[in-house]
């Protein structure tokens, strides 16, 4: 690998995750680097989404989840009991497969994060909302109807609104769970373009089903199969000369 240790932003060490008796992740150890986009690929049920949700502890919401091993974000183990999970999630934002704007106005959707952090000053909020919407490349489309309901937007716009909303809390890492799977090709292209622009500022981890998408947007790719990390490398190498047979079979479409 060409990158050195101190560029690592997220590192997992022997991460095991169980839903009740069922093991969903098997000893996953991985380094995810700053200012890069990492794609997680693999067939359905391979653990890639579970892994993503382990990175901001969204799995905590499910009864019966049990985690072993370490997830270090900038050297801090986020499963340490001393870690504040609320603080963690502010640092590690998440975009979901199905866009999920609140049934509130566009403005209030983006202002939600700042507001729960105690920002109530109107001009400050205005500024944060505008900046986030610009970053999400949505500002020009919605600037005249910020009071319109977020649910009135098109699917692609809704997803960008969710990205803007996530960025309004100034995270360092953005986790994306198949963010474009429900969108048409044009909206998908916009999201991909956005990801490309955001990677200078954020560490991005994206789960995708779509090989071409992984190839287009990511710098590194990790291949999961049956809860195990089979292989991780630079995307270019993963798609042209993977070192494992399973990876090759998957990226060439022989299974999955």
């Amino acid at each position: 690998m060409t990158t050195s240790m101190d560029e690592t932003r997220i590192r997992t060490e022997g991460l095991n995750l169980f839903y009740g008796p069922k093991q969903a992740l098997k000893s996953v150890s991985v380094d995810l680097k700053k200012s890069r986009v990492t794609a997680l690929i693999g067939p359905s049920g391979c653990g890639k989404s579970t892994f993503l949700r382990a990175l901001n502890r969204m799995n905590d919401l499910i009864d019966d989840v049990h985690v072993e091993g370490k997830v270090l974000i900038e050297g801090v183990d986020i499963y340490d009991p001393k870690v504040d999970v609320v603080e963690l999630r502010k640092r590690v934002g998440m975009i979901f497969q199905k866009s999920n704007p609140f049934p509130k106005s566009i403005y209030e959707n983006v202002a939600y994060g700042p507001r729960i952090n105690g920002v109530n000053d109107r001009s400050k909020l205005d500024e944060m909302v505008e900046r986030s919407l610009r970053q999400a490349a949505l500002w020009d489309e919605v600037k005249d109807d910020l009071t319109k309901s977020g649910l009135a937007l098109s699917g692609g716009q809704q997803q960008r609104l969710c990205i803007a909303r996530a960025m309004a809390v100034n995270p360092e890492i953005l986790l994306m769970d198949e963010p474009a799977s429900a969108l048409d090709p044009i909206a998908t292209a916009k999201i991909e373009e956005l990801i490309y622009q955001l990677k200078s500022t954020y560490t991005i981890v994206i789960v995708t089903h779509n090989m071409q998408q992984a190839a287009r947007v990511s710098d590194d790719t990790a291949f999961f199969y049956l809860g195990e990390l089979i292989e991780m490398d630079e995307t270019k190498k993963m798609f042209t000369a993977p070192s494992k047979k399973q990876t090759e079979d998957y990226v060439t479409g022989r299974f999955g």
């Binding site: 900038e74 801090v76 986020i78 340490d80 001393k82 609320v86 603080e87 360092e172």
Partner: peptide, 13 residues
């Protein structure tokens, strides 16, 4: 470095 204050788990009264 912001990461260190992840540890200071606040007691949310």
């Amino acid at each position: 470095m912001r990461s260190s204050d992840l540890y200071t788990r606040k007691f949310h009264v």
